[in-house]
Design a binder for these strands. Structure first.
Length: 797
DNA sequence: ATAGGGTTAG
């Protein structure tokens, strides 16, 4: 706002030329095909040469106007021309046809050859600079203008304002505008557009008001920019005001204005208004169809988007272009129509739309959403040109498909590229850090964010809070939470959840009351976090209290997640009948997660029959639920029902289900990357020492088994024992390595991708006792803080 | 003879 109001607006009364110009532009049809008049007789050229040149000029112009730049260039090179007009023609041609760098190069060549540039030359080249975001080149041209005395030309200045806006230098655009000796309507529109270009809809609209205060009447271009400003800010009220102005000025039949109105309404969430406008547009171009399709996608109406794609071909005989496909693809994901997505990809290939950065990026999104990270990766790998959005999309595709390490590696690769991660990139990668990073790596990304411009972005800080909790430092999570400038409801939900996963239930409840004291209204997620906390901390009474309160006091209907937490708690008490009844009486259809809760409870209370019942339900819903197979098979193993164990095993084999490889991560002293141990891991360079430490500790604890004993077992015993023996489980190896590679007094931090087993849990407790070290193990559900022989989870997890 | 600002895209 301040930037606009600071403008000095001198000479604004001088608007006669502006009115003329805007009137002229209202009938906006350029006589592009008019025959060029031969240039006035100049130098000693004979008439034959003159005639020849003029026909060549005409040929160039025809090629330029029909987009055949190669042909135009061919003629140009043959005629060896020193006429400014022809050079201008070429530069304009390149710019109009999207060949911005060629345009800039041509201008350079012109300079080198000493050919006089004029105001037209500068206009075209500045336009090319703006479109290609070549800020430095644009600034050089700007400097040159002073030398040649064109720095006050109103057209040139207008295009400079626009160029600075497009390159993101809004301050320069504003300053230039302020300093212009003469301003017309286009100058104002350029500034309005510049604000839109940097995503500042507020100032764009403020500028629109200012221009009217200075006696300028907005024209159709002003309206189009203003509507875009409204969509950026989701200002539907302003949008409607502009709509009224459109009607008052009689622009309602202007196709571009109509399209902009349609787009504004759908971006502001009123796709119904957009649809009504759409129906009234008589001349539906591909842009109109695309905008409508985009509106349906944005407002999650994939069916209608599908219908659009069909109808644009049937009704108007238009064939979808690259933008149509870009708009259409998300609706395939929304609709779960993988085949349609894939065939759109095929269509794009057949139509020759590829390579195309935006389209390819959309395809990465598509395949990411459909659980095909390999396909996304393929597209990413073969792309010639990648934008920051491309990288963010690929990172996000990995994260969505639980390929967190790939996401981290790709992010690190991005950091050494000239592209700077933006808020979206960071928001995409942070969940990957939460899942698989160690504290050291977490601190690195935190440091990076602190130094970036995103250091006070609430959304990102919320992710950081969660990340610290998941990396094992709830205190740091809290410290960051405390320093968030603008805490939203997610900030509170996150810190409550942070304490929940560490089993600090009291803390969660404390934060919940602080949240209420600050007048933040809890939402659905808040109660998921709270109930999770009650469940991990075993606070049964509190859980019921919150459960009742959410309906009564906040009018929030409990969802499946809430029922899951309550069920966990019932299961924990061991009242399995009650748990079973609870599921039956639930008003919602039980999900795999619900049956999983019953399965865990049955396992912990050794009720094989009920476990089988739960597992049956899980398999009916998710035949590929690996955890369910493993849990069931472990249950049988504990009961020494080896035949059943074998049955489950062959079932898994038959259905092509592979056991998730369990791993434990621990920071490494020798490398910046953490070390990932798997069960029976022997790959670490310090393997011998690690196993020696483990052996000594186990002997002290009294688990009198040799850790190298596995080798001595008979093959048959090995077969039965190996998978179920906890002796060399990854978590133990990680703890031992942690003990010898971290400073005494510091806790040993280990992260696991699966639940910790009972044996390892009790071993960890004892290790914490005899080594007098705090050991923190974050498994796939909760964190275990082992200290002095006890665990924070209270031996239930 | 050529102008400047403006519609759909991740």
């Amino acid at each position: 706002m301040a930037a606009t109001l600071s403008h000095q607006y001198h000479h604004c009364h001088n608007s006669i030329s502006a009115i003329k110009l805007s009137e002229k532009r209202l009938t906006d049809s350029k006589p592009r095909t008019s025959i060029p008049i031969p240039s006035c007789r100049r130098k000693p050229k004979n008439s034959i040469e003159n005639r020849r040149d003029s026909s060549l000029r005409r040929a160039i112009r025809n090629h330029v106007d029909s987009g055949q730049m190669r042909e135009a260039l061919e003629i140009f090179e043959k005629m060896d021309c020193s006429e400014t007009y022809v050079w201008n023609l070429m530069i304009r041609g390149f710019t109009d046809n999207g060949l911005f760098f060629e345009a800039i190069n041509f201008y350079r060549r012109m300079e080198n050859q000493g050919i006089q540039a004029d105001n037209f030359t500068y206009l075209f080249v500045i336009k090319a600079c703006g479109a290609s975001l070549s800020f430095f080149e644009g600034q050089k041209v700007h400097g040159k203008l002073f030398k040649v005395g064109l720095n006050s030309d109103v057209c040139v200045c207008n295009s400079l304002v626009s160029m600075y806006g497009k390159s993101g230098f809004i301050k320069l655009a504003g300053e230039l505008f302020d300093e212009m000796p003469v301003r017309d309507l286009v100058s104002w529109n350029s500034l309005v557009g510049a604000y839109v270009a940097v995503g500042d809809g507020r100032n764009s609209l403020a500028c629109l008001l200012d221009m009217q205060a200075f006696g300028m009447t907005p024209d159709r271009v002003s309206m189009i920019s203003a509507l875009k400003a409204c969509s950026i800010e989701c200002f539907i009220r302003s949008g409607k005001e502009v709509h009224c102005q459109v009607l008052k000025c009689g622009f309602e039949l202007d196709l571009m204005v109509q399209t902009s109105l349609l787009d504004m309404y759908s971006k502001c969430g009123r796709v119904d208004y957009a649809e009504r406008l759409f129906r009234e547009i008589s001349q539906k171009t591909i842009v109109v169809w695309n905008a409508m399709m985009g509106g349906f996608v944005l407002n999650s109406q994939p069916q209608k988007s599908f219908a659009c794609l069909k109808k644009m071909q049937e009704d108007d005989n238009l064939s979808p272009d690259a933008i149509s496909i870009i708009n259409f693809l998300p609706s395939c994901a929304q609709f779960g129509a993988f085949l349609d997505g894939k065939s759109s990809h095929g269509y794009a290939i057949r139509k020759g739309f590829l390579p195309h950065v935006v389209l390819e990026t959309s395809l990465i999104d598509l395949y990411g959403a459909f659980g095909k990270p390999k396909l996304a990766e393929y597209i990413f790998g073969q792309m010639e040109e990648k934008s920051l959005v491309t990288w963010s999309s690929m990172i996000s595709a990995y994260v969505q498909n639980e390929q967190n390490e790939e996401a981290l590696n790709l992010f690190l690769e991005l950091l050494i590229k000239p592209l700077q991660p933006d808020a979206i990139t960071l928001a995409s990668v942070l969940p990957a850090y939460s899942e698989v990073a160690t504290l050291k790596e977490g601190k690195q990304i935190h440091g990076y964010i602190s130094k970036s411009e995103h250091r006070s972005n609430t959304y990102i800080l919320n992710s950081l809070v969660y990340m610290y909790a998941k990396c094992g430092e709830p205190e740091t999570a809290r410290a960051i939470f405390d320093r968030i400038l603008f805490r939203d409801v997610s900030s509170w939900n996150t810190i409550i959840m942070a304490y929940a996963i560490h089993g600090f239930g009291r803390k969660s409840i404390e934060l919940f009351s602080m949240m209420r004291d600050e007048g933040i209204r809890p939402n659905y997620i808040t109660f998921v976090s709270l109930l999770t906390s009650c469940s991990t901390s075993g606070m049964v009474d509190e859980a019921w209290r919150f459960y009742n309160s959410m309906k009564r006091d906040y009018n929030i209907v409990p969802g499946i997640e809430h029922y899951g937490c309550i069920l966990d708690l019932i299961g924990r008490t061991g009242n399995l009948d009650r748990a079973k009844n609870f599921i039956e009486e639930m008003p919602l259809t039980p999900t795999g997660r619900i049956w999983g809760s019953l399965l865990t409870a049955s396992r912990n209370h050794r009720n094989i029959e009920l476990a089988e019942h739960a597992a049956e339900h899980i398999f009916a819903l998710e035949h590929d639920n690996t955890g369910c197979y493993v849990l069931l098979s472990n249950l049988y193993a504990e009961a020494e029902r080896w035949a059943d164990v074998e049955r489950i095993k062959s079932l898994m084999k038959q259905r092509g289900i592979k056991k998730t490889v369990g791993w434990s991560l621990v920071e490494s002293t020798t490398s910046s990357k953490p070390y990932k141990f798997i069960n029976q891991d022997k790959s670490h360079v310090q393997t011998n020492i690690i196993y020696d430490v483990l052996s000594i500790l186990l002997r002290k604890i009294g688990e009198e088994k040799s850790v190298h004993g596995m080798i001595k077992l008979k093959p048959q015993d090995l077969k039965n024992n190996r998978a179920y023996s906890a002796e060399n489980h990854s978590v133990r190896l990680a703890i031992c390595f942690g003990l010898i590679s971290t400073k005494v007094g510091k806790p040993v931090l280990v992260r696991k991708n699966t639940r910790i087993c009972k044996d390892c849990h009790s071993v960890a407790k004892k290790i914490s006792e005899i080594t007098k070290r705090e050991i923190v193990v974050g498994d796939s559900k909760v964190f275990h803080h082992f200290r002095d022989g006890n665990c924070s989870c209270g031996d239930y997890w």
